[in-house]
Design a protein around this nucleic acid. Structure first.
Lengths: 199, 199, 199, 199
DNA sequence: CATGAATGAGCGTTCATTCAT
DNA sequence: GATGAATGAACGCTCATTCAT
């Protein structure tokens, strides 16, 4: 009746719709029917493209985690040491800032969903924590910063980033630029690294 | 079957049981019947003491948030400046470490439950963030540390603490002492504060 | 805490309270707890005086049916023929008019409650229908009115009376005097009886 | 188990089944599961076609009230004055006589269900009372009968009809022909109208 | 590929009734 | 006689998932 000439494929429409509804209502408060309506499709179409609700949700999580990882890897491609660490942190923050709804899904809606989702959450969290950790370890090895418990630091940084972003996702404050300005130095200082004023 | 002479009141047994089951399975995967069994009581008894599942869950969240706040306030009672900030952080970490199940409920199970729970989560999060923020502001005013965006810092710290604790809650690693040893200096350094080596 | 010196016995307070709540909300929408509160007593007290909810309700029905029958019998004690019929009809109408809440219970709330209550309803209905029918039969035998199917007439009259009273119970209109003025001649005319203008 | 090739639509089967069970057991004593079984369908199918138990019941009430009104209007189409009044009364009686189960639902099961249903009951009752009343008023205006309080008369007639029909619905007595033979003259006489013997 | 009526296991909640004090 | 915390069977309703068309 409408959406007849929507250029997106059915699968894309479903994922977009699911992203919208999940990020707005959370996993459990989202009904498959709502996604059907938002995507202007049918129940059967969703189940043709995704085996079930859970997998549809996880597809969104994975999609965004992949994007995030790709961006980080691009950003640090030609860098090393603490410059690289700094670039990674900034990229994560910028990407969250640019994609508010996926960020909400990854950081909020994917939590507390019961043991089914916990593995995925652990996995995604670890994925980025290990990335950060490995960069930190290299910076330590290079003597740029003093030795620290890089595993704890990586998780702490991820938590710090996530929490500030969550705050922004919900309230719109503090805005991305302010986050970037305050959080990046904070994290770097925490491991004793002081970027040159001129940077 | 047993528990006939359980000295705890029915209400206490229900809250204990709910804490166990909720922290193990999460809010949505917990069935009222499981709590009934764990508490060795009846469905009616639960609904006599709590209006519904949601309020029962929130009662646990509030109970632990209250405990946490009480402990922090006790711990910082006679302190000032960065010593006070440090005491607050340590107390939060120690309390989480001591109460693993309530910590899991507060930090994990209360997240992503849909908009009904978000307000509560925001509220509890803000409660502690503001506490930290006010202590930081005093330390800045006293000249102990350089000016920082204390709001962002407070949320960042809360996130860092939470994420490391969540990691521990799930995997048992890193253990509380290690967390304390690594995280406290990290946070303090992040604002440019360096405790004396002898402390 | 209150009602400490209520002169009515507990049993009376319970029946009054039950009458109020049942007539206001109907049988199924009335909770025992509401009666407890309205009667300022306890759950146990109600179950001490009445075996269960159903019997409490039926006690009210019977109480009012008894009152109605007593009044009718008093009113027709020294009368005969159509004068007696007329007196009976008027008494029923007057009594309904005087006791609005019991009337509502008898005529409305006791209907449609399922088969448990149907027997009672049949019984009460028959009780008065037969009374009217016997008076009518006597009037026929006395030659005051032409022969009619007195059983049908009795039920029709009861229905007519009930429906008009129900209307009044809900809307307050038509008021008792108007009902009396319009309904009594209507019923008497229906069997060909015309009271003298001077009466 | 069977009914696999039942030609009726699911919705029709549900309404038929609901009519059977509701008329047999009453609203509150009817379980949704009983309707499911009687309709040889599933719980979900009922809730796909009707929002809830209440609305399903009211759909039956409305369906029969509509049928009744349609029949009455057909029957009086080409008539006027007391002939029309008589035709309306007869049609109501005949329709009740022909549809025993819907009649029981409308006249008995829809009563005393609490305030949710009262509005509907008032509405349906008024609908027919006003119809009768308007026909009576015309007969009065035409000088066929003497002036009467037509509102009271209409409600009285409806009550008379209903009560006699209820009696029949429950006991099978008096049978429709006897009702028709006794009740129609009774009602007409009540307003002073005497049909010609030859009719 | 898409549709949407149908399925049914499962759950939160209610509330009349009981009984130890 | 009175109390009210406790009981537990029962029920309406939800919603992810399926499948004939």
């Amino acid at each position: 009746m409408s959406a007849e000439h929507d250029p997106r494929s059915t699968r894309e429409r479903i994922m977009d719709a699911a992203l919208n509804v999940f990020s707005r209502k959370g996993y459990y408060d989202t009904r498959m029917d709502e996604i059907v309506e938002e995507a202007a499709t049918s129940k059967g179409a969703i189940y043709f493209h995704f085996p079930n609700k859970e997998k549809l949700f996880l597809a969104l999580v994975d999609q965004f985690a992949d994007l995030l990882e790709r961006r980080v890897k691009e950003a640090i491609a030609d860098k090393a040491g603490m410059v690289r660490v700094r670039a990674a942190v900034i990229t994560v923050l910028e990407t969250f800032g640019k994609y508010r709804r996926p960020a909400k899904i990854l950081l909020v809606q994917a939590v507390g969903l019961g043991n089914v989702f916990e593995k995925k959450r652990q996995e995604v969290g670890e994925r980025f924590a290990r990335l950060i950790q490995s960069y930190l370890d290299e910076a330590i090895a290079a003597g740029e910063i003093a030795p620290v418990d890089s595993e704890v630091v990586a998780h702490a940084w991820m938590g710090a980033i996530e929490n500030v972003v969550i705050q922004w996702v919900y309230t719109g404050e503090p805005q991305p630029e302010r986050i970037l300005g305050a959080l990046v130095p904070l994290l770097l200082h925490s491991v004793g690294y002081h970027e040159k004023e001129g940077a």
